[in-house]
Write a protein that binds this DNA or RNA. Structure first.
Lengths: 337, 337
DNA sequence: CTGTTAGCGCATTCAC
DNA sequence: GTGAATGCGCTAACAG
């Protein structure tokens, strides 16, 4: 490995000078600078980030902790976060805690071992809480990316659930749907919020909310949703003409359940998903509420880097609106008549 | 931050002793050890990995460079690699080069800056070559995970393409298919290999290979496949009864194209995919050739860590067999008659 | 404008 | 069994 010392010797200057030209930390004579640059180039010198980190105290690495990677949304988030980070010269360290509390606990030491400059998390409530408390205690800068607002006083970047739900319901109404069901995970804080805005929007639109049209699932994936909807359909025929699933996977589970009961999609049941993760791959291509992933990722990185720079940086909270993406899973009842 | 010095002072011993009990690097009196351990615990001391890295020369970080993250297969690989790494005490740094040569080149400096102990890559030929050459030059331990065997002399872990294709073709034949088409990316080395085994298996099975039944695409995604298959169908009706797509996304593109031409799936056209990425989410659920992702990831990590430990570790090549996953996209022609 | 030096936190050799 | 001292590669304060 070629070190700064090697370069200094070869160039006939001191290591301080080499450091100066590398970091532009103080004026260097043009001739000297060129000489050093030339030697650096010739010897293929790269500054050792580990040594630099030890000296300067930062590692230029951000940990991103996600609850899953099987769900494509998180892969999409990871992608955006990594892109934003690399533009700023930071590396992304990835940690997947599977939304499991036990795993999270055992990973806490990784977080604490001061080998990261900051942390971005997209998490469930219980695991998120664990991480947030740890970071607070150890004074590790962090930002919550797309998490229900549990920690009002912390920096977080979320999407505006109201805009998405409003658009979804409005769209369904515009297509002639008046009986709308909702499918959500039983104990998800974020999805409860969607549920809240759902009811609110129905009321605003003069539509009744039927408690019978709320289907809850035990988990976040399509299997849980399939089970829930299948159970639902065993008892009764659906009176609703449309269903909004609180993520694309739930909606997929619903699609399968409806198919099992020979209900035509979208002719008999229209569907809307959330997240725009697998929506485009489904059949029919799923109309879904898209998340502003790029904006969310970019902003969270921006805030985090600010917090790293200024430890007293004021907690900042940002919301970005969601956008309904119209595809083929909603039938136009008006046209049909 | 609490340092080893703080611990030493508090415990009334030297830092050398503290270091000894942490690393078990030399005998320590039981009483001293307990005392030190107690203080470490009380003060919440964690050894600073950056300082450790500077001293010892390793960073306990592995870079995993993938060509995409939009394609779910890579997310699945990332997941497995991260799990394997963390078990061994290594962190995963993620880099996504989008399979772009320009991006790869600009990322090369990240690779070279000696802040990683090793590298795992899942790459296309052109980008892979760039990275391999860099690593060889800089003597960075690396292993190729699931890459067509370009570098015969390097460590790599691949899956056995023959087993998968054999199973796929055999299965199709068992369901009464004799006219089988193949859909692949035009210039993908790995897919050319699949094509090779495809022809080989057809010949073995006494089936003709019709050059007309090879459809090639310009890209790896469903859009490229949709375009290619649509163009194909514009000219002629498909004579084949089944098509194998060289990845699930290509196959999805084909499905859409067939649908456009009102061909029923699987009744009129049966389909098989590759990778088991989005296969299970499609409709009909796609029969596909699954990759042994977990085994691949685990083995590649194992080899890499060996290479890191022993610089002269002999290049090792491993193959794991693929497994056909039967779902609903292949019709049984025999039964139909 | 440039060189000398201290020290980031740790592991390790050499003494005792 | 234990401590003092050295240095990993680098940046920044201090001198000139």
């Amino acid at each position: 490995m070629v070190t700064i010392k090697d370069v200094a010797e070869e160039a006939g200057v001191s290591i301080a000078t080499v450091s100066s030209v590398i970091n532009d930390s103080r004026p260097v004579a043009q001739a000297t600078r060129e000489k050093v640059l030339k030697v650096i180039n010739e010897m293929g010198y790269k500054t050792n980030p580990v040594a630099r980190a030890l000296k300067v105290g930062n590692t230029k690495r951000i940990l991103y902790i996600v609850p899953s990677i099987k769900n494509l949304v998180f892969a999409q988030f990871i992608n955006q976060v990594q892109h934003s980070l690399i533009k700023k010269g930071y590396d992304l360290i990835l940690l997947n805690n599977e939304a499991r509390v036990d795993l999270t606990k055992s990973y806490l030491s990784i977080i604490h071992s001061s080998n990261i400059d900051g942390l971005i998390m997209t998490q469930t409530r219980s695991c998120g809480k664990l991480i947030v408390e740890s970071c607070q205690q150890k004074k590790i800068p962090f930002v919550i990316l797309f998490e229900p607002d549990i920690f009002k006083e912390e920096s977080m970047v979320t999407s505006d659930e109201k805009t998405g739900m409003d658009q979804a319901v409005e769209y369904l109404i515009s297509q002639g749907h008046h009986k709308i069901a909702l499918l959500k995970v039983a104990d998800s804080r974020n999805q409860n919020k969607r549920f809240h805005f759902f009811k609110e929007k129905l009321a605003e639109s003069g539509l009744e909310f039927n408690n019978d049209w709320l289907i809850t699932t035990a988990g976040h994936d399509e299997k849980a949703a399939y089970t829930a909807v299948t159970n639902y359909l065993q008892d009764k025929k659906p009176e609703f003409t449309a269903l909004i699933g609180c993520n694309d996977f739930l909606t997929l589970g619903a699609i399968r359940a409806f198919r099992k009961y020979k209900l035509k999609i979208p002719a008999e049941i229209s569907l809307i998903g959330y997240d725009d993760s697998i929506a485009e791959y489904l059949y029919p291509a799923l109309t879904t509420v898209g998340l502003p992933k790029k904006k969310l990722a970019k902003k969270s990185v921006e805030i985090l880097l600010n917090k790293i720079k200024q430890p007293d940086y004021q907690a900042e909270q940002n919301k970005f609106s969601q956008q309904l993406i119209i595809r083929d899973s909603v039938a136009n009842l008006k046209k049909a008549k």
